[in-house]
Computed example of a mutant assay.
Amino acid sequence: MDLRLNEEQRMVQQTIRRFVEKELMPLENEVLRNELNGKPSLSEEKTNELQKKAKQMGFWGINTPEEYGGANLGQMMLALLTMETSKTFVPFKFGGSADNILYRANETQKKQYLLPTINGDKKSCFAMTEPGAGSDTQNIKMTAVKDGDEWVLNGEKTFITGGNDADFVMVIAVTDKEAHEAKGRHGVTCFIVDRSMGWTSQYIHTMGEWGPASLFFENVRVPEENILGDLHRGYDLGLEWIGFARWIVGARAVGASERLLNMAIDYANDRTTFGKPIATRQAIQWQIADSAVELEAARWLVLNAAYTLDLGEDNRHLASIAKLYGATKGNDIIDRVLQIHGGMGYTRELPIERWYREARLWRIYDGTDEIQRLIISRNLLKGHVKLGAHI
């Protein structure tokens, strides 16, 4: 068992770290000013410029199969890259990728949706959450009724990431009411729906800079050929999408927490009270020690979830563990960092308060803390997973 990065992984990690330090971190003050003035964090022109630079470095389609022009570096590498890019709050995503479930498309759908998304010509989003179906994903109410060769969609989705800018949505709707009411996982289907087909979106203001959308469907007609995957089996696709996203949240928490903890260490050594650096105070030392232990534990939980996926094994249990621990401990670490900085940490002169607001979301989206605990305990109590089985 090798618990160290190999030469290739370390080289890629260091390259991305330099990219983040050279290209992204210098933009942080600009991003803060834009957000304070109600403007987009980065202009589309700047985002395209950054993606172009990343592509020139070979970082395009990190996990996109090579047949589609991607690098296909694997989930472990994606985890490492996410940790590095999360050390800054400058919003940046490597181009050349698409949602994991979009690869389930048939050949016609791939030409119309998958390839344009990978090439950056179209933007997508995924919609499952509803006002009454957040953590309770089986309580979906949005309907799709067959009418000739089309399906007529009615309902609302909410808190949809990317919903304000998407050209099309992969949306989950009830197609067999009786089967759905009898067993919530059954009787729902995933549809690919172009914005031009009639759905609308509305921006949702949040305490952080995340700006999700509500999507509204009123008699939106979708052709039969736009069903993604199998009829009445859309719930499985939804779980597949959510499962992939969970451990990524943990990776984001690790990256941000590492950057912030380093800020706290530097500040503790520089800040003097009563004639001594606060780094000499036990109250500060223990906060830093606890944060360092939690950070390392979260890092390995995330890497284990990613490594298990690379092996082709089911990582859903590990993904929930990584998400739960990473999100909760990331929040704890950021809270301590703010406390160590005192009043300055609470001001907008430093980016800590901005991270503090963003981090609180980690414990909610892609499955709340409570849902992760439910999943983990249920897997163990029902014998679906044995302790130590993933070593």
Rank of each mutant, 00 (worst) to 15 (best):
Ile371Ala: 13
Asn304Phe: 04
Trp362Tyr: 13
Glu209Val: 12
Met1His: 09
Trp199Val: 05
Arg185Asp: 15
Tyr307Pro: 11
Leu78Asn: 12
Arg104Gly: 12
Asp335Ala: 09
Arg271Tyr: 13
Lys22Arg: 10
Val12Ser: 06
Ala327Pro: 08
Glu353Leu: 12
Ile227Gly: 04
Gly155Ile: 07
His384Ser: 03
Gly326Tyr: 03
Gln109Thr: 07
Arg357Tyr: 04
Ser196Lys: 08
Ala98Leu: 12
Ser43Val: 12
Phe191Trp: 03
Pro131Arg: 10
Lys183Gln: 15
Ser320Gln: 02
Tyr325Phe: 12
Ile16Arg: 01
Thr64Val: 09
Leu228Arg: 08
Gly211Cys: 02
Ile172Asp: 14
Ile284Ala: 01
Ala264His: 07
Thr308Gln: 09
Ala283Ile: 05
Asn331Ala: 10
Lys382Phe: 04
Asn304Gly: 07
Gln202Asp: 07
Tyr346Met: 12
Glu44Ser: 11
His390Phe: 15
Asn63Gln: 15
Gln56Met: 02
Val193Thr: 02
Leu260His: 01
His232Ala: 03
Thr206Trp: 00
Ala179Pro: 08
Trp241His: 15
Ile321Cys: 10
Gly250Lys: 11
Asp266Ile: 00
Tyr356Met: 05
Glu353Phe: 12
Gly95Asn: 04
Gln112Gly: 01
His317Val: 10
Trp151Asn: 07
Val20Phe: 09
Leu215Pro: 03
Gln282Cys: 05
Val385Cys: 00
Ile101Ala: 13
His390Val: 10
Ala289Gly: 00
Gln112Ser: 08
Leu115Arg: 04
Thr47Asn: 02
Gln14Lys: 09
Ile284Tyr: 06
Ser43Lys: 07
Val254Tyr: 09
Ser201Arg: 07
Leu260Val: 01
